[in-house]
């Protein structure tokens, strides 16, 4: 569901949404970590000015995760 959220948002925010991949990793504390990799030119776009975009995205992802009763983190990876 959180993956769906990111897949929906991506075309609105980045230039190469087709190059977005999302890897789901569960860490040792049971937190679901979504690792996003993007076209190099899109990294800054998903992060946004002063991290505004990624912060908002994280906040909404947490809300979506809350409904399914698990913790969610979003990381942007190289």
């Amino acid at each position: 569901m959180t993956t769906a959220l990111i897949e929906f948002v991506a075309p609105w925010l980045v230039d190469h949404p087709d190059e977005l991949t999302i890897e789901e990793v569960e860490d040792e504390r049971g937190t679901l970590v979504l690792e996003l990799s993007l076209h190099p030119d899109d990294m800054g776009k998903i992060i946004g000015r002063q991290g505004r975009t990624i912060r908002a995205l994280r906040s909404l992802a947490r809300a979506a995760g809350q409904r399914q009763d698990h913790n969610i983190m979003i990381e942007v990876v190289d």
Binding site: R52, T53, A56, L57, R58, S59, L60, A63, R67
Partner: peptide, 19 residues
């Protein structure tokens, strides 16, 4: 869940929508 503590999630929704 979409409003959140002190409206923080709502603020995030508004911010992401604006962007």
């Amino acid at each position: 869940v979409l409003i959140g503590r002190r409206g923080q999630t709502l603020d995030a929704l508004q911010e992401l929508t604006r962007i």
